[in-house]
């Protein structure tokens, strides 16, 4: 049984999408802009209404309360948002991911508005991982990062998937990155999903 199973999902801008992710698997998603990648991520995180079936570990989405669903199916949008002025106010006690991403404990005292875009991006990922999600939906998580930070993020996500038997759908336009991290990729064109042929 797949960890995350999507069948016949449809929503405005998305038609009849089916795919599944196995435990520990990372799948890349690509597609031209406007093809519906973000819409798909939003629909999977249940931020927008959609029809069809989405199951996590065999349980249908409707059976899981929304807050619990979004903790387990964690969506990292391309642009992170912050509601308090200190970084630490966005975290509970989990610090593991913070250290792994190269942040010290004092990062909690940092002002959000003084973060660089790369720091924001990595902290947003750490904030998401603190929930211990089973499925990660990452929308271009390394778009603002230099090569070294990109490598750190890739390694962190791969380690996380292996340790927690979690799965990940990773949006990227970078074919080199795709080859580095994923064995399988999907392509979205005009709201329809295709299995991409390995290059």
């Amino acid at each position: 049984m797949a960890l995350f199973e999507v069948s016949r999902l449809s929503a405005p801008g998305l038609s009849d999408i089916s795919f599944s992710l196995a435990a520990g698997e990372l799948v890349c998603l690509s597609g031209p802009s406007g093809s519906g990648k973000t819409l798909l991520m939003r629909a999977l995180a249940d931020l927008d209404a959609s029809s069809g079936q989405v199951c996590l570990s065999g349980t249908e989405r409707q059976q899981i309360v929304p807050t619990q669903w979004r903790r387990q199916v964690g969506f990292l949008p391309a642009e992170s948002r912050w509601w308090a002025s200190l970084v630490g106010d966005h975290f509970t006690d989990q610090q593991v991911a913070l250290e792994r991403l190269g942040f010290e404990e004092e990062v909690r005292e940092w002002q959000v508005e003084r973060l660089s875009s790369g720091e924001r991006q990595r902290l947003a990922l750490a904030r998401l991982l603190a929930n211990q999600p089973l499925v990660l939906l990452l929308d271009e998580p390394t778009a603002n990062l230099d090569p070294l930070s990109t490598q750190k993020v890739e390694q962190l996500v791969l380690d996380y998937l292996a340790e927690n038997q979690a799965a990940c759908l990773w949006v990227t336009h970078d074919s080199a990155q795709r080859e580095r991290i994923a064995a399988r990729s999907l392509q979205l064109v005009d709201g329809r999903l295709h299995e991409a042929v390995p290059a």
């Binding site: 931020l47 619990q68 979004r70 949008p77 948002r81 509601w83 904030r127 998401l128």
Partner: peptide, 20 residues
């Protein structure tokens, strides 16, 4: 909207997301 949804994405309830 962005902030409210960011909180929802992290598993906050609507009450938490709207508290401020």
């Amino acid at each position: 909207r962005g902030v409210i949804e960011a909180r929802l994405m992290l598993g906050h309830s609507t009450q938490q997301a709207m508290s401020d």
